[in-house]
């Protein structure tokens, strides 16, 4: 880059942001990796180099494997779940057209505009096995054989979490897809109609193929969320019963701040960081190459 007058000015204006972001994000990521190779326990930094000890301890920790599995399950179920439901809602919005779109869009987006702490508390009330609305409804419709312990049953607890998260996120993905659908030129749809395409064909042949980049963008956002999920689960189940709804973000928090085991927490953070990067980097490369 040639240092023209313009470039100097640009650099000058950006410098404060570059320094702040560089320090508070990149330096601290590096610091976190450094801590993960130490044996820091307690509230004073301690940098005795112990190599991969924390990582080896992690590999022997059943909570870690359970957390990792749960994160993967989130990726496998929550991400496609939110994408499919979001797409469905977006198409519904498109079909409804301008008549009710504003109202429905607001309704769909409402869950996402609420804080996780609030929605998690609401869901924890609904899932409550003895007083919750779910079991009460099932009871009153004579479907008590469907009653479940929900979040108190380790076999289904994680699926309860995933269901609630899909509910919260699908409105958001619907909004993204709906913007995508709007960006498709009206003329293409018209042309297809003239050629005699059915509504179904218009969506499968014209709309969906053009939503690819929107799907990819939502996919990355959802993936990153699925990996760093924390607050919702912390409030809803606290990782329980047992290890059944533990995720890496929660484990990192608990072992860092409750156990004051900073090096262990840092090792979990590093693993989380690497996993997120494995997803984000290919995406960024793809977008740049386009």
């Amino acid at each position: 880059m040639r240092l023209s007058k313009d470039n100097v000015l640009t650099l000058f204006i950006l410098s404060s942001s570059i320094v702040l972001v560089g320090y508070f994000i990149y330096v601290f990521i590096g610091w976190n990796v450094l801590i993960s190779f130490s044996d820091w326990v307690g509230l004073t930094p301690r940098y005795n180099f112990v190599g991969f000890k924390q990582y080896i301890d992690l590999s022997n920790d059943p909570v870690f494997w359970s957390s990792l599995t749960n994160n993967l399950l989130l990726v496998l179920l929550f991400v496609p779940g939110s994408l499919i439901l979001g797409l469905f809602l977006a198409i519904l919005l498109d079909v409804v057209g301008t008549r009710g779109e504003g109202v429905f869009r607001t309704i769909f987006l409402l869950p996402f505009s609420l804080s996780f702490v609030i929605t998690a508390t609401l869901w924890s009330w609904m899932y409550d096995p003895s007083l919750g609305v779910l079991n009460t409804i099932l009871n009153s419709f004579g479907l008590s054989f469907l009653k479940s312990g929900w979040i108190t049953d380790p076999k289904v607890a994680l699926y309860c979490v995933i269901l609630a998260l899909i509910w919260q996120f699908s409105g958001y993905t619907a909004l993204i897809f709906s913007a995508g659908i709007k960006s498709i030129p009206e003329t293409q749809i018209m042309a297809a109609k003239v050629d005699g395409a059915s509504g179904f064909e218009i969506y499968t042949r014209i709309v969906l193929p053009q939503l690819k980049s929107w799907v990819l963008a939502s996919f990355v956002i959802l993936m990153v969320f699925a990996l760093k999920a924390f607050d919702f689960i912390y409030v809803l189940t606290n990782g329980g019963p047992g290890y059944s709804t533990y995720v890496l973000g929660l484990m990192m928090f608990i072992y860092t701040f409750f156990a004051t085991h900073f090096s262990y927490g840092a090792a979990i953070a590093t693993i989380l960081f690497v996993t997120v990067m494995l997803i984000v980097i290919p995406y960024v490369l793809r977008v740049r190459h386009r």
């Binding site: 924890s124 409550d128 003895s130 312990g149 979040i151 329980g240």
Partner: peptide
Amino acid sequence: YVNPDYAA
């Protein structure tokens, strides 16, 4: 002998 909804 414990209530099954203890986790809630």
